[in-house]
Amino acid sequence: MPPGLVIALAGVLGLLVGSFLNVVVHRVPAGLSVVSPPSACPGCSHEVRHRDNVPVVSWLLLRGRCRDCSVRIPARYPLVEAGTGAAFAVTAWRFDDPVVLVAALVVVGAGIGLALIDLEHQRLPFAITRVATILVVLVVVAGAATGSAIDWTAVAVSVACWTGLYALLHYGSGGRAMGLGDVALAPVLGLVLGLVGWPAAVVGLFAGFVLGAVVLVPLRATGRIGRRAAVPHGPFMLAGAALGLFVGVPLSQAYLTTIGLS
């Protein structure tokens, strides 16, 4: 299949996944089913028509309002859809190995939903992490069964490092330094980054802490965030993993070249 077509199809898939993520972000934290009942307007409770459920396009045609009661539909919905579509397209552009591509798409989709939930509710639901982990494991197993080249050493070391560090931070601090949701998310991030290679895994692992420090230290120093205020680490963790996934290898190569080791 031509690369351009793969990228386009991935972008369309991302739009559809983004539409579903809007449901997930709203319902999962509330303990509601993501499949029933069908989506409805919060203002008039009228079920959303199929033609009004086309990602991005429907929101634009409706001018951001419900067809029945004209209540405003938050711009976050089309932004999540468009953002997920763009993220999927970039992922398809970056990776041509089928196993890495599919595994990365799973993590990218789940990661967007988890980041949004963590920012709003300060939690990473196990339900999403569990599904993402199962899907990635199935992708890797299927890839191995069909003869895909997988560096099992890199995968094992990456999973062990990601899981071990987050588990140590959680249990070593009695849960104060890191939440259990972060610990549950670490293995699947380590698995996918391990598929790309150990440089991606290392960059992704430490980039999350660096990004957190860059953002939070100035905010705490200026008093905009209290020193004891709880701040979700999930978005930084996921952003760091994304950096490792997409640019971890070239970043590590540039660093090694700079210090004369490559």
Score class of each variant (00 low, 15 high):
S148M: 07
H26Y: 15
V214A: 14
V188A: 06
G172E: 07
G143R: 06
A221R: 14
R63G: 05
A142L: 14
A144N: 06
A254C: 06
P250H: 09
G31Y: 10
S19Y: 07
A89G: 09
L219E: 01
A254F: 07
E120A: 15
P187F: 00
I117T: 00
P199G: 11
V136W: 02
H121T: 08
A127L: 14
V28S: 08
V140R: 02
G240H: 05
V231D: 00
Q122I: 15
V141T: 01
S148I: 05
L191F: 02
A10T: 07
P2Q: 13
I134Y: 06
F126G: 10
V139H: 06
R51D: 10
R72P: 15
L238Y: 01
I117H: 06
F236Y: 13
L62M: 13
I225A: 05
G260E: 11
R27M: 08
L79G: 08
L135G: 04
R123P: 00
A144Q: 12
F95Y: 11
G14A: 12
W93M: 13
V6R: 08
G64D: 06
W198Y: 11
G83L: 06
V214S: 08
G204P: 01
S45T: 14
A92E: 00
V139R: 02
M178E: 02
V196R: 02
G204T: 02
V247L: 14
A104F: 01
G31T: 10
L105N: 01
S39Y: 09
G11P: 05
N53Q: 13
L180R: 00
G181W: 05
A242C: 12
